[in-house]
Structure formats: structure tokens, C-alpha cells
Write a protein that binds this DNA or RNA. Structure first.
Length: 838
RNA sequence: GCCGGGGUGGCGGAAUUGGCAGACGCACAGGACUUAAAAUCCUGGGUUGCGACAGCAGCGUGCGGGUUCGAUUCCCGCCCCCGGCACCA
């Protein structure tokens, strides 16, 4: 027999695919397209099997769809900007560009050695000016539309290094380099107005039927729409008022205090009017809840001594400042209703503030004196003037209207989603393309001057201002409007900007004038199948949905949602933990390739569990998949000479039972695998089905003149029935075709061994024939009183009555029914006969 | 606390619409081949009890109930695990 040498096959076929440009595609309106995409990679240096799992999943889909007749776009690229490369530069002195490009080269080799069918000619790297030019282009479009704007915002500041720190660079509140305590500092920063699309991003989720429910829910919660009302409480002792946001205006008669966030503007006003403004400010500042652990230490605050008027009761209530009110949500102020809100209840108990009941339960009446928790549930209004007796939901609607009529408030919709801060005080990112002029203010860089290239920097210190500010010849420019002296913006963009539209760039990756040709996007988009880690469930996917809508409004695309079907793949663990260099539990795919070849690794990773599930890496399992490939190899090798070549007989009507059985199994396997891959994405059971087919073909071979495939029994020109040859040829061809998405190198070689001409990327997926898959007879299980008591054999088209009779007449079943009364005989799906006796 | 997903042999997992629980593989055991080993091929196995070892009976998908001729699947009430969010008024 020919030996199975996977490493040689890997090289041979990978070369072949590259030289024939097998996976490169062009727009072709005459063919249906399929866009298969895996989340592009951060070039960290080495891909481990956890990363690689995702690319294999996508490749199964891409290769299958190609064989199913689609024009398949399956590209890959690099999310190449980012902090790690810059941190490395600070530590080792290697320029981020060099380390990034080196890493890309290595990882690209790894993916190529796995035989992933990428259209490499469309490869992109976000750190190249060809690409980031269009980050800047899109930014300018957003700037023109008021979707990019500046406002003051807080950053982490290291007072020793004089630099801004990213959240990842703050370790336990201290600078990652010098260990000094990080402080908050306000800077002017750029934002994208994603909140303008909040409603649309929310309603669009309804259309994402092929996304995991989990991801949809996470996005919905992140956007966090809530309907409520804004209500103004006039100050009792000064001009002006304080506006609160509430979803429960129906409880307003029970508001016994107002709470302001420590950052609320009114706090400063109160401070200025107080006898000791500095002390007042310091006191308020102590309750700023920057740190998320504030809730752990309970609800704390202080009474400002000022009062407001409840606009519904007319009664005076005190104004407090407390740590549990968020400055950046709603109006930064809330009305305290301790009777009906858990947080207000806790606060009132802490400071002995009065509690009033204004919604009384119909089922379990409560009283302010005895209650141990706020009553947030059902009930009707009490102590609420003209609204008494109304169910709370109705009261909520009526009182919102009343507030508007009285001019003291109005119904409103509030989102948790905040605008997206994109400014980074870093080097290794896209320069924000604006110029600051004393005369003209903030001016966009003219489009014809794009890209604004990153200046050369040779030493990375991690100290001082934004790195770009240290290159005066780059910073100092003339204003595009007035020609006077001006300065470039020295911040770079968040790398999430890069990844928010890269899937569109793949449609037309070489375009020098536009991010992409709208006609290309119209053909290829949306992405039909998108897979990646669940860690991107919120930000990356939400930002991509946002960008798609912005580009729609700019006129480049005509659809709303970029990703039709989403799969979030599970991680690969080793020793119960996520693989990481620091844990020393990384499995390098190259080690596995050296031992078993790419196909065994691919097959194993798909077989071990469904794609969404986390898996524990297991060397023995990989070994098993390798054994299976050898088994397939031996089967094909055993038969190739006899059944191979063109012009073999086709399956005729003269098949015997065993041959018909093989055909049935073949077609049933085609049906199952096609649906497992395309519909259900159960790649593990697809592999099981292949294994079953192989097992069946081994058994069948044993019954032929050739005998079972085995190293010790080489075929020796034995004569087979023509039907046997035809049946095996059909089965083995189908097997090789169906295994090819999983084990493409082996399949190509076997296809050739079978005497076929041409590469598999041009061959169609085997066709399913329902008539062949249908058996002549069925074995029908028979239950008596719910217990399996026997089986009967019946014609495939037996009627329910026939099945009933056959079951009742069966000798084995009679043993359980004789002498008893038959109460009922049910014929169920399957089919299955269920007899009830007593 | 809220939201989402789970709990099936020694292990990974399967069961597509309420219909034969445990497919397929790993590990293990036995057999064939071999001087021998490896490799390969074949066979076996949820569990308990009885027994004439190819037989019989019972139990069995986290726990307790329910619906149904029939429940891993649907309903009610619990327990446990994993993931996300976390003072959003």
C-alpha cells in the first residue's frame, strides 16, 4: 500500500492551491455569493490551537459552500495597531512596526500550513497607510456630520511619567512601569456619537435571527433603553430647579428626598453659596464613585442643607449628595422613594429618612413601619391625591401626561449606552486627521492630503505627552483654511475603529480612492457567516453595526446589518485554563503539524465538541483522528485501482441487499452531513457520520472478493460484481468529497488516487438522492405500557392500521398482551407502536 | 441581585418536531495476526439483582412533583455549575 505521509501532502497541495490561485475570487453577478469571515487576528506573535480553531470552523464552511456552487469570499487580515506592540517597544526598543510585521509573517505561515483556504491576495493590515487612510476618511465624514465631536473626559494619569495610561496599564490603581499612584485628569477628547443610533441599533437586533440569543441579549442590555420621565423639582430657597429622571413617576408622592451625583453641576453652585466652599467641595468629592466597589461599602452621602419642592405634593424635601447616583446617566439626579426602590430604601435606613407608602399591594398589604424591603411590585396608588386607586402602570402613564401638561416634566427615553471615546494618547494607532488653528479652530485635514502618516519615532520612552507631540516637524503645520500656523491633533484612534469596517474593505482591498467600491460591497455584503470569540459580543459587533449605518447614511452601502449569521466559538483549554504564554500551557499548532499533519489537527478540533463549546485539549483525541485518516487512506488505497478512473458502471437495478444497504448509508450520510454543516453547524456530528460511513464500508469490503482493507491483504486482481464496483465508487467518491472540507490535503490526494482529474475546489458536493436513502423495510419498536418489548419488521409504506395489526400479532409482543385487555394502541412518529394494556 | 446557557457512562460527547437513551470517538478489557512487540482488524461494556455465560427482571439523563400511551426533550418547584451585567433610578 501507498504510505500516508501527511506532511508531504500538506506541502504539495498548499503549493498547488497557491499557484492555481484556487481561493482567489472576483465579483461575479451571475453566481450566488457567500461571504465567510473569521474575526481577523491581533498579530501577537504566535497563534495557538485556540485561535486556530476559529479559522478551521470558518474554513469548513468556506470549503463546503465553494463545493455547493457559491462564489465564496474568504479573506483574512490583521488587526495590527494596538498597545502591546507599543509596550514592547518601550521595554525592548523594537519599533512597533517591525515587531508587528514580523509577527504577521510568522502567523501567516502558521495559517498557511493549516491549509486554511484564504484569498490571501486580499490580505489587509490595519497599521498600513493604505488601510488607515480610510479610517481617517471615515472620521472626516463623521466629523462633517457632527458624529465625531470633542468633549472633556477623564483619563488615567501617571504623575511621575507624565503620561496617560490605558486601563490595561493601570495595575491595582498604580502605573504599570513606575508603580506610582494613578490620578484622574480631564482632557479634551474625541467621541463618536453612537447614541444617535441607539434606537436603531436596538431595533435592528430583532432582525438578527441567526445570532446567538446570548449575544443579542448582551447588546440589548448594553444599549439599555428605558422609558421614563424627567421631572423638575424647584429649589425652595433659590432660583432654578433640579431635574431628575425616573421610570416610576407614579411613586412621586412618596419621594422624601432628592439625591445628586457628586459631579452634578448644582453641587458646585451649592458649594459656592456655602460658608466654606472648599470644605463643601471636598466633602462632595469624597463620594465620587469612580471605583466600582462603592456599592460594596454601602450607600453614603450627606445632606446639603438645601431643599426642593415636590411638584406634585407641593411639600418640601431635602437635597442630598450620595455615592450611589451616577453623574453620567439620566440627569445625574434622582428622586428618593424609599418605599418603592431598593436603593433609596437602603439609603433612607442608613440616614433615618422618612419612608412613605404610595403603592399599596392588593395581595400582601405593607406598612412603612414594618417593611424590611422596598415594595417595587404590583399594586394601586394610595396617598397620591387625585391618582389614588389607579393601578401603578396606568398611574405611570397618566402622571407622565400630567407632568407635561403642568409644565414640570415630560416623558423621555433614556439609554445606558454612552458615546464612544476614541482618543488615545498613544503612538501605534491611526492619527486623528484634524488640525487645530487658533483662528479657525478645529479643521479637518483635506481629503486629498490623506493619509496623515504616522511620523517616524525611534525611541519609545512611555513618558511625557502623547508620543506624536514629541515630533515638532510633524505637529507644526499650516492651517488648511487660513494658511496660518497650526498644530496637528496628536491623539490616535482607538483600535476598535480599525475593526469596525475591515469586513467592508475585504470587498475591495486595493481601492486607493474610497474605503471600497459600493458595487463590490453591494455584491459581497453582508457577511453570511461570521465567527469569532464571544469576548467581542458587545463592543466590536456593536461598533461594526454602528459604522455600517453611518456608511449607509454617507451613501456607501444600502443595508443596515453587516453580519447575517454569527457563531461564537468556544475556547480551547489546557489543564482547565485558557492557553497563555504566562501559564505555560500553550499548544502550538506547528508541533501538532510536525507529528500528524494539518488534516488530523483540523479533524480533531472539529470532532471534539460542537463549535460553540469550550473544550479541553487532549493529545489522545488527536491521535484518534489521525488513526481515522489512516483508515480512510487505507480504504481508498485498497479499492482505488478497482473502482477508480472514468467510465465506471453506474449503480443499476441489479444491486443485492448488501449493495443497496451501502447506497442507502451513503445517501443518508450525504443528507446528514450537509445539514450538519450548513444548517446546524454541528461539525462534530458531521465527523461522526463520516466515521460511521467508513466503518460500514470496511464491513462491506469484508464481504467482497477483495476482502477487508488491511495492510496484510493487498488486492490481487480479484473479480467483483459490476454493481459492487459501482456502489463502492459512489460511496468512496462521496466520502472523499465530504471529508475534504475537514481534511483537504488528504482528500485532494485521494481524489487523484481515484483517477479523477482536477483539484477539489472545482468539484461539486455529492448530490443527495432521497429515493436511494429510503429503506424498503423499517424496524419498528413496539412498547407495551411504555416499555420497549420488541420490534417488528414492516414495509416502509405500511399504514398505521397495518403496523397496529403486525404489532398485536407478533409472538414476542403477545407474551405481554395475552390475557390482558388492550386499552389503546398508538402509532407514533418514527414509526413506533405503543400498546396500553391492563 | 438581574440576565443568559448548562447538569446524560471512566472521559469528550450524540439523540434534528415528545418516540428505541448513551451514536461517534478516547481510555479500558478480550480475541485474531505475529517468534514477540508495535501497528492493524474484530469483539465487549450504563447499572443492580437473579441465572442455565447469547436469558430474565428492575433501576437509570442533577433533585422532587406534574402533563402524556410515551419525557434527556414540555410544565411547576428546588439544588448545583459556567458565562455576562452589576447602584442605569
Amino acid at each position: 500500500m501507498t504510505d500516508y505521509k501527511p506532511q508531504e501532502l500538506d506541502k504539495k497541495w498548499q503549493r498547488q492551491w497557491t499557484s492555481s490561485r484556487a481561493f482567489e475570487v472576483e465579483r461575479d453577478e451571475s453566481r450566488p455569493k457567500y461571504y465567510c469571515l473569521e474575526m481577523f487576528a491581533y498579530p501577537s506573535g504566535h497563534a495557538h490551537v485556540g485561535h486556530v480553531r476559529n479559522y478551521i470552523i470558518g474554513d469548513i464552511m468556506a470549503r463546503t459552500k465553494r463545493m455547493r456552487g457559491f462564489n465564496v469570499l474568504h479573506p483574512f487580515g490583521w488587526d495590527a495597531f494596538g498597545l502591546p506592540a507599543e509596550n514592547a517597544a518601550i521595554k525592548t526598543g523594537t519599533h512597533p512596526e517591525k515587531s508587528t510585521l514580523d509577527n504577521i509573517a510568522h502567523m501567516k505561515g502558521q495559517l498557511q500550513r493549516l491549509g486554511i483556504s484564504y484569498a490571501w491576495e486580499r490580505e489587509i493590515a490595519t497599521c498600513l497607510p493604505d488601510y488607515y487612510k480610510f479610517n481617517q476618511w471615515i472620521f472626516l465624514k463623521m466629523f462633517e456630520r457632527g458624529l465625531a465631536y470633542r468633549k472633556r473626559s477623564t483619563v488615567n494619569w501617571c504623575p511621575v511619567d507624565n503620561t496617560v495610561l490605558a486601563n490595561e496599564q493601570v495595575i491595582d490603581g498604580c502605573c504599570w512601569r513606575c508603580g506610582s499612584v494613578v490620578v484622574a485628569r480631564d482632557l479634551e477628547q474625541w467621541f463618536f456619537r453612537i447614541t444617535q443610533y441607539a434606537d436603531e441599533l436596538l431595533s435592528g437586533l430583532e432582525t438578527l435571527k441567526d445570532w446567538p440569543e446570548k449575544v443579542v441579549v448582551m447588546q440589548r442590555n448594553w444599549i439599555g433603553r428605558s422609558e421614563g420621565a424627567r421631572v423638575r423639582f424647584a429649589l425652595s430657597d433659590a432660583a432654578g430647579d433640579v431635574e431628575v429622571f425616573t421610570t416610576r413617576i407614579d411613586t412621586i408622592y412618596g419621594a422624601t428626598f432628592i439625591v445628586l451625583a457628586p459631579e452634578h453641576p448644582l453641587v458646585e453652585r451649592f458649594a459656592a453659596a456655602s460658608p466654606d466652599p472648599a470644605a463643601f467641595r471636598a466633602r462632595a468629592l469624597a463620594f465620587r464613585s469612580q471605583d466600582r466597589d462603592a456599592r460594596m461599602s454601602g450607600k453614603e452621602g450627606f445632606d446639603t442643607g438645601r431643599m426642593a419642592v415636590n411638584p406634585f405634593t407641593g411639600g418640601p424635601i431635602p437635597i442630598w449628595v450620595a455615592n450611589f447616583v451616577l453623574g453620567e446617566y439620566g440627569t445625574g439626579a434622582v428622586m428618593g422613594v424609599p418605599g418603592h426602590d431598593a436603593r433609596d430604601f437602603e439609603f433612607a435606613k442608613t440616614y433615618n429618612l422618612p419612608i412613605a407608602i404610595v403603592v399599596q399591594s392588593d395581595t400582601a398589604p405593607i406598612s412603612a413601619e414594618t417593611m424590611t424591603a422596598a415594595h417595587a411590585g404590583e399594586g394601586r396608588l394610595v396617598n397620591s391625591g387625585e391618582f389614588n386607586g389607579l393601578p401603578w402602570e396606568e398611574a405611570n402613564r397618566r402622571m407622565t401626561t400630567a407632568a407635561a401638561e403642568r409644565g414640570i416634566g415630560q416623558g423621555t427615553v433614556q439609554y445606558r449606552l454612552k458615546d464612544w471615546g476614541i482618543s488615545r494618547q498613544r503612538y501605534w494607532g491611526t492619527p486623528i486627521p484634524v488640525i487645530h488653528c487658533e483662528k479657525d479652530g478645529v479643521v479637518g485635514v483635506p481629503y486629498e492630503q490623506l493619509p496623515v502618516r504616522l511620523p517616524e519615532i525611534t525611541t519609545f520612552t512611555g513618558r511625557g505627552d502623547s508620543p506624536l507631540a514629541q515630533v515638532p516637524e510633524w505637529v507644526n503645520v499650516t492651517c488648511p483654511k487660513c494658511g496660518g500656523p497650526a498644530r496637528r491633533e496628536t491623539d490616535t484612534m482607538d483600535t476598535f475603529v480599525d475593526s469596525s469596517w475591515y469586513f467592508l474593505r475585504f470587498c475591495d482591498p486595493k481601492n486607493a480612492n474610497l474605503p471600497f467600491d459600493p458595487a463590490d460591497a453591494a455584491y459581497w455584503m453582508p457577511v453570511d457567516f461570521y465567527s469569532g470569540g464571544v469576548e467581542h459580543a458587545i463592543l466590536h459587533l456593536l461598533y461594526s453595526r454602528f459604522f455600517t449605518r453611518v456608511l449607509r447614511d454617507v451613501g456607501l452601502v444600502t443595508f443596515d446589518e453587516p453580519f447575517k449569521r454569527l457563531l461564537t466559538q468556544g475556547m480551547v483549554l489546557k489543564n482547565g485554563a485558557v492557553m497563555s504564554k504566562s501559564k505555560g500551557n500553550v499548544v502550538d499548532p506547528d508541533d501538532m503539524l510536525a507529528k500528524y499533519g494539518a488534516d488530523a489537527l483540523r479533524l480533531y478540533v472539529m470532532f471534539v465538541a460542537p463549535p460553540e463549546k469550550e473544550v479541553e485539549w487532549n493529545d489522545a483525541g488527536l491521535e484518534g483522528s489521525f488513526r481515522f485518516l489512516v483508515r480512510v487512506w487505507r480504504l481508498v488505497d485498497h479499492w482505488a485501482e478497482t473502482i477508480g478512473g472514468e467510465g465506471m458502471p453506474t449503480c443499476g437495478p441489479d444491486c443485492n441487499d448488501a449493495e443497496r444497504g451501502v447506497r442507502r448509508k451513503t445517501h443518508d450520510t450525504i443528507r446528514r452531513i450537509t445539514s450538519d454543516i450548513e444548517d446546524r453547524m454541528h461539525l462534530n456530528t458531521a465527523v461522526s457520520s463520516l466515521m460511521e460511513l467508513v466503518n460500514e464500508l470496511y464491513s462491506f469490503s469484508d464481504s467482497t472478493a477483495h476482502g477487508a482493507p488491511s495492510r496484510n491483504e493487498p488486492p490481487a486482481g480479484k473479480v467483483e460484481r459490476p454493481e459492487t464496483i459501482a456502489v463502492l465508487r459512489e460511496a468512496i467518491d462521496a466520502l472523499v468529497l465530504m471529508i475534504s472540507p475537514f481534511a483537504p490535503h488528504t482528500a485532494e490526494e485521494l481524489w487523484q488516487m481515484l483517477g479523477h482529474v482536477g483539484s477539489l475546489d472545482t468539484v461539486s458536493w455529492p448530490a443527495f438522492d432521497a429515493a436511494v436513502a429510503k429503506a424498503a423495510e423499517v424496524t419498528v419498536p413496539v412498547q407495551v405500557n411504555g416499555k420497549l418489548r420488541g420490534r417488528i419488521t414492516a414495509p416502509i409504506d405500511a399504514t398505521e392500521d397495518q403496523l397496529r395489526e403486525l404489532a398485536l400479532a407478533d409472538a414476542g409482543i403477545r407474551a405481554y398482551t395475552d390475557g390482558k385487555t388492550i386499552r389503546r394502541v398508538v402509532v407514533g412518529k418514527g414509526p413506533l407502536v405503543s400498546i396500553v394494556v391492563s
